[in-house]
Design a protein around this nucleic acid. Sequence first.
DNA 1: TATCGTAGAGAACGAACGTTCTCTCCGCTA
DNA 2: TAGCGGAGAGAACGTTCGTTCTCTACGATA
Lengths: 207, 207
Amino acid sequence: MEDIEAEGRLLDAAEVLFYGHGVQAVGMDRIRAASGVSLKRLYQCFASKEELVEAYLRRRDRRWRGALATRVAAEQSAADRPLAVFDWLEEWFGEPDFRGCAFLNAFGEMGAGSAAVADAVRDHKAEVRGYLLGLVRDAGAADPEALADQLAVIVDGAITTAAVTGAPGAAGRARSAAAVVLAAAGVTGGNTEGRERSRGKRNRATG
Amino acid sequence: MEDIEAEGRLLDAAEVLFYGHGVQAVGMDRIRAASGVSLKRLYQCFASKEELVEAYLRRRDRRWRGALATRVAAEQSAADRPLAVFDWLEEWFGEPDFRGCAFLNAFGEMGAGSAAVADAVRDHKAEVRGYLLGLVRDAGAADPEALADQLAVIVDGAITTAAVTGAPGAAGRARSAAAVVLAAAGVTGGNTEGRERSRGKRNRATG
DNA sequence: TATCGTAGAGAACGAACGTTCTCTCCGCTA
DNA sequence: TAGCGGAGAGAACGTTCGTTCTCTACGATA
């Protein structure tokens, strides 16, 4: 098995297990078993559990933001894109293995004990906030920086609320709050009201 | 040492250690050392670590909501109280040992593995949401249920953002978002705008 | 003073942790 | 075919975990 393949399998196993059960609840041996990679090779790829955790977070960050951006970019009007974030969130919340924000979970567990993990989490949140900033800037918001801050707060609140309640409905409630702050900043898309969106297809092309 | 005193010292130690370092990162022996309660007595009070964690969360829930309610009740006008929540949050975020939401942290760590902990977290979030509902109802909001949902999302987002960034400024940004959704629901207090509040004393009595 | 119940200190238990080491086997070269 | 390097399997290391047990000391009662 090549190094690059082993690394991928290790990160795949780490993502499923760390995200699903928490970092501290999953031992290295369990990752070895799930990945099929020998323990020796595991420690050749990642010198410690902390390194593996950090790598897991950084890869998840890229994938997560990539999936979000892909979904949002499908929205044709720049003014509609900020709210499309919450449509994507709702889809994500509905997935059976959804268990909240991997980064916040890891931060709560290891943020106080591992600077590397804390940095990865901070970087992720900063990237997301930067992405939202670009969206509202393109949508012509009055004060993009302030609006991005507000949306970032609402997004995090939506994720944690959905995780605890176990219901994807938090996305819709967050979406309605986001619609209000967007409207207040002068961003009015084609479906600012939201909420009844789930009754059928969007009125704009989504494909 | 009486049972009731031992229990209090155990919960005090558990709160500082579990909240500060995470639940899994703190062993029972460390709690014994910090509390001065013997291990035997510890297991007489709490039959397992899980029970201690749940008791820690439930006591913290009562205290946390009590402190919040005390601070908010000092606001004379019912219309100003919802935003006062965020003033209290900012004070909390500025405390040196602030490390995010104890309940979300515990949920991320043990929510998948302990039903008792998950229940305690859900109960806390439901209580907070119910408290917010009462506030906006008293303030005469148009749709109190929907508004309470929105505020609950913003509160959770504020806490997690403040925890990750390590700066209390998230409270102000959440406050401004909350002010917008409150205004949209017809709740207009004496200082809805917020934001410049931090430049000096509030214009209403705070004592 | 002799006895008893209880409490604290901390040793001890088995399991699991992160990490390293040993052993064996296989594919390559001379 | 003999020898070598690297890889996988998994035993083993030392530590720490949650939990239980042992031993000693002490205060109350007769």
